[in-house]
Design a binder for these strands. Structure first.
Lengths: 205, 205
DNA sequence: GTCTATAACTCGATAGAC
DNA sequence: GTCTATCGAGTTATAGAC
C-alpha cells in the first residue's frame, strides 16, 4: 500500500535534498518522485521551505533508529560505539561510491545563511548528535582522563566526521575519511592510555 | 582605476559564491556586482559553470598570498604555522559573525556531484592546501614521531578545519571551531611529547 | 569588447473545479 | 484532499547593433 501523501512528499524531498541539495531540487522534482500533484503539496506545506523544515524534523526523529541504534546494536563498549557510528557514515560513502555524505552537513553549508529557522533546525540535529556521542563518553568516563571536557571532544568527533565525509566526497575516495577516523582513533587511544596509566584514581574527583 | 572586466567578473562571482553559494547566485547578481552587462560576461565565459571554474582557478592562485603567506609571516615555527593558518579561518569567522567559512568547503558539498570538472578543481584546491600543511610537518619532523604518516595528519588537519568551520556557521558561534582546534592542538602536543621523550634517537631511522 | 533587448525556459506558488 | 491549468517572476543564455 502507498504511504500517505504527506509522508511520500517528505521522503521524496529527503532523498532529493540529500543527493542534489535544496536549491537544485525543484518542487517539480519532488512532485514527480513522490507521484503527487502540485495542489497536494501546497495543501500540506505552505512553501518549499516548510517542506525542508519537515524533512529536518524527520531527521531529528531518525537519529535514534537510523544512526544510533544500528551502531549500538553491533557493539556495546561505549568507545567502540562512537566508532561504530562513524562506520555507519563510512557505509553510506561506500554504498554511494562516495557521492552521498551526511545529509545534515550537506544542508548546513548550503542553508545556514539563507534561513534562520532552517539553520536553527540544523543546529538542533547537530546538538542531538553530539549529545548521543557525549553519552558514550560519559559511559566510558572511567577510562578517560578525569579532567576531559566531554563537550569539546564530542564536538571534535562531529568535526572529524563532517570534515572526513567532505573530503571523501570531493576526492571520491574513502582515504581521507579513513585517515581522519584513524587519526581520531589514535588520539582517543592516547586519552585512554593516559586514563589507564595515571596514578591511583581518587574517588569523587 | 577600474580593473579589467574579466577580473571584475571573477571577483564578483567569488564574493557571491562565498556568501550565497553557486546555485543561489544568479548571473544577474554577478553582473550587477561587477557592473558589467550580460553580453560582456558571455564574451569571456561560455557558461556560468566556466565562470565558477575561473573562480576556482583563482583560489588555487590565492592560496599562497591570501592563506599561507599572512600566516607564515606571523610565526616561523612550522607547527605554529599550522595553527596560524587555522587562525586565519577563525578570523574569517570572526569578521563575518560566523557567516562566512571556507570558500572551497562551501562549494565542495554543493557542487561535488553536479560537475566532474568542478569537483576535480575543488580536489586540486584541497590537495594544494594539504601539501602546504604537510610541508610544515616535514619541517617539524625532528619533533614528531619518526613513523608519523604526514599525509594522514595533513588530511586530518584539513578535516578539523572544515568540520570546525561548518559547526561554527551552523551554531553562529566560535565555540565548536575553537573546541576542535584546541583538541587538535592537544593531539599534536602529544605527538611532539612522544617525539621528544622517546629514547635516544637513531640516525637515519 | 560592450551594449540592449529578448528568447526560451524553469521556478515556486495559486486558483478553482471536483 | 486531489486534480489541472496557469500566473508572474526569475533563470541562463543569445542576437545583433555599435
Amino acid at each position: 500500500m502507498k504511504k500517505p501523501t504527506r509522508q511520500r512528499l517528505i521522503e521524496a524531498a529527503r532523498e532529493l535534498f540529500l543527493s542534489k541539495g535544496y536549491e537544485a531540487s525543484s518542487v517539480a522534482d519532488v512532485l514527480a518522485r513522490a507521484e503527487v500533484n502540485s495542489g497536494s503539496l501546497y495543501y500540506f506545506f505552505k512553501t518549499k521551505e516548510q517542506l525542508l523544515l519537515a524533512v529536518l524534523d524527520e531527521y531529528v526523529d531518525l537519529l535514534e533508529p537510523m544512526v544510533l541504534r544500528p551502531a549500538f546494536e553491533r557493539v556495546s563498549d561505549p568507545l567502540d560505539r562512537v566508532f561504530a557510528v562513524l562506520a555507519g557514515y563510512r557505509q553510506m560513502l561506500v554504498m554511494s561510491d562516495c557521492r552521498l555524505g551526511c545529509p545534515i552537513g550537506n544542508l548546513a553549508l548550503e542553508m545556514s545563511e539563507k534561513s534562520e529557522v532552517v539553520r536553527e533546525k540544523i543546529a538542533l540535529n547537530f546538538r542531538n548528535w553530539r549529545k548521543a556521542i557525549r553519552q558514550c563518553l560519559v559511559d566510558a568516563r572511567d577510562r578517560l582522563p578525569p579532567d576531559l571536557d566531554r563537550h569539546k571532544l564530542a564536538a571534535f568527533i562531529l568535526t572529524v566526521m563532517e570534515g572526513g565525509v567532505m573530503q571523501a566526497r570531493v576526492h571520491r575516495s574513502l582515504e581521507p575519511f579513513d585517515a581522519s577516523v584513524a587519526t581520531l582513533k589514535d588520539y582517543m587511544d592516547r586519552l585512554v592510555e593516559q586514563g589507564t596509566t595515571r596514578p591511583i584514581q581518587q574517588a569523587n574527583s
